[in-house]
Design a protein around this nucleic acid. Structure first.
Lengths: 145, 145
DNA sequence: TACATTTGTATCGTGCACGATATAAAAGCA
DNA sequence: TGCTTTTATATCGTGCACGATACAAATGTA
């Protein structure tokens, strides 16, 4: 490719990644609005529904988000009654996030969100799996940098 | 897949998209820091290097960002001397962004950013093209919603 | 046991993103 | 020409993201 072509927006990998990510988040939003959630908050719940009572470090690793992003986000979730935040007794540094009744019950509504969304994506299951694989491969390499 | 599996973080398409996008942006940042740019600002320059003097509407369509995101971003770029912002004479509503000398000269440094980054991605050219294609297919379908 | 180092969270400042809304210029039309 | 509607941009408020930094609890070590 020529230099000028290399610099074209549509030839970059970064841009479609960035645009597609925002676009998919936007598709989630109307569904999540009904549950009173933002998209990152929904991700937190996905983690907690899988494993309840995790500390910030674990949450941070799973979501690839740092404490400066998560702490305020989790405080907002505490304020809206979705989770509780308590210090660990064994290690006073560790902050443990656990589902409240309200946060726990929302799990029943999540499958509807997922199925609604996957119907909307407009790509086949094979393509979705392919995309999934490529994204994890990309991440796997970049994380070790 | 079972309901519980469907809700697992790693099985979602949305999460790797979101995480990979942030991760790639993070890889750009040290390179862009040397040019005094943020990643979205770099995207604006990519558009302007391709076609100078575009109004906000065009920029908004190309980057899929709205005026409430772009206006302050472009003002910051004006403040740092990268672009000029002037009202169109034919249509007083239209705000036209054009490269300054400084913004124009930065184009010479962009190929180095691109080649540095593509070396870092850790996926083959074929995989990158495949990923590129899948992302555009995804976007193409979602945009028409 | 004293002290340095590491670890887990939190705080601060800046820059996006975006829904909702405002405003003025332009275009359409009775 | 008056008036409505559309279009292009801007403003406001809220919630992320993240680099840099602070701080206290835990750990390692002489």
């Amino acid at each position: 490719m020529e230099t000028n072509d290399l610099l074209k927006l549509e030839n970059q990998l970064c841009f479609p990644l960035y645009a597609a990510s925002r676009l998919v988040t936007k598709c989630y939003q109307p569904l999540l609005d009904e549950l009173g959630l933002t998209y990152p908050q929904y991700l937190v719940l996905l983690v907690l529904w899988e494993t309840d009572s995790v500390n910030l470090k674990v949450l941070s690793e799973k979501l690839q988000l740092q404490s400066n992003t998560l702490t305020p986000l989790l405080k907002r979730m505490e304020d809206t009654g979705l989770i509780s935040r308590t210090r660990s007794e064994e290690d006073e540094r560790s902050m443990i996030m656990a589902l409240t009744k309200k946060g726990s019950l929302l799990k029943h509504k999540a499958p509807a969100v997922q199925s609604q969304l996957s119907n909307n994506l407009g790509i086949s299951l094979e393509e979705a799996q392919q995309l999934h694989g490529l994204l994890y491969k990309l991440m796997g390499h970049l994380e070790t940098k």
